[in-house]
Simulated scan of single mutants.
Amino acid sequence: MDLRIEGLGVDIDGRSLVRDLSLEVRDGEVVGLVGPNGSGKSTALRCVYRALRPTSGTVRVGGDDLRALPMRHGARLVAAMTQDGAVELDFTVEEVVALGRAPHQRGNQALDARERALCARAMERLGIRHLARRGVLTLSGGERQRVLLARALVQEPEILVLDEPTNHLDVRHQIEVLSQLRGAGPTVLVVLHDLNLAAAACDRLCVLSQGRLVASGTPAEVLTEELVAEVFGVKATVVPHPLTGDPQLLYALHPHPVNSL
């Protein structure tokens, strides 16, 4: 299912956090939102998973205005893993993962056999099945990240929205998590700070600066030395990855940082 953001604007306390943002994520595609801190990436995502009502513009899922859909129906279509998705109560891992089925259930009905198997597969896929009976408050930050991603996948969404899913993960688990996004089933919109990981994981990148879309295209089209200097204010050399050919950035410390937009 495709996701379209059309003319999105978000104004809060007299400040424009997102300005006339339009982009499309095609069915089954992985699109990364990248940009410096404060560029509007997470704000735009909050509008997609309905945590924030935009000042203007529309978010469409499969052609339907997301705001016009009932909340339960919208939750079946869009799942989110957010930066502030902390679990305050000491549920077990398997209990937290099972919460992903809530949009598909009525009341406190128990999971059926198919749903239990779905939860087990998600935990296995993310390497956390051995933690099933552990309380989430006893886990490391990286382990919790994988639990929350498993919960989102168990929701069986058409659209998966991820805000910095590699936070707290070590290198191995960063690679494992991101490698599963392509071909995972849902259409994916993901915010990533690491441009090299974004280049490896995403089909296309959309670059935001000061709330505006300033570039979009394949990683090779977008991640140029000129754009990185202008938007991120750093000097970098772009080289092809020796195994995949994906663009990779080699950064250099610079005594006089390049002015950003």
Rank of each mutant, 00 (worst) to 15 (best):
L162F: 13
L189C: 10
E143K: 07
L253W: 14
A102P: 04
A98T: 07
G211V: 06
E143T: 14
Q174W: 03
H173D: 01
L21N: 04
V177C: 12
R106I: 02
H130I: 14
R15N: 04
A150W: 06
T138H: 11
Q248D: 10
G107T: 03
D65Y: 13
E29F: 08
R50E: 02
V59D: 00
T244C: 13
A152W: 14
D163G: 13
R106A: 03
P54F: 12
R125V: 14
L66E: 00
G107R: 05
T58E: 09
P103M: 06
A51E: 02
E95V: 05
A102G: 06
L99R: 07
T92H: 09
G127E: 13
A198W: 10
P36C: 15
V161T: 12
M1H: 12
Q174Y: 03
L249D: 04
L66M: 03
T138K: 08
G32N: 04
V10C: 14
Q105F: 07
P242E: 15
P157H: 12
D163N: 10
G35S: 09
L77P: 00
M81S: 05
E95W: 08
T43R: 04
Y251P: 00
D65N: 13
V228S: 06
V61D: 00
G28N: 11
L66H: 01
G63W: 07
L243N: 08
E6F: 15
G141T: 09
D84R: 09
R106T: 05
C47P: 05
D11R: 14
E124T: 15
A215H: 14
R106F: 05
M81D: 08
F91Q: 08
Q210R: 09
V61T: 03
S42F: 14
L52P: 00
D112I: 06
P247G: 11
L189Y: 11
A120C: 04
V231C: 02
G38N: 11
I5C: 07
G63R: 02
A75R: 09
D64C: 00
R116S: 05
D13H: 11
H256T: 15
T138G: 10
G107A: 04
E164A: 08
E226K: 08
V234I: 13
M81T: 15
Q248H: 09
V147D: 02
L148N: 05
L139K: 04
A75P: 01
S39P: 01
S140H: 11
G57Q: 07
D203I: 10
G38E: 06
M123W: 03
H73M: 09
G142A: 11
D163K: 07
V222C: 04
D13K: 07
D11L: 13
A152E: 06
R72F: 09
R121P: 01
G14W: 15
A252Q: 08
I128H: 00
G142R: 11
D13G: 10
L250I: 15
I5K: 03
L21W: 12
D203S: 06
Q105L: 07
A236H: 11
R4C: 11
C202D: 02
T55P: 00
L227C: 04
L89P: 00
F232Y: 13
D246P: 01
L250D: 02
S140Y: 13
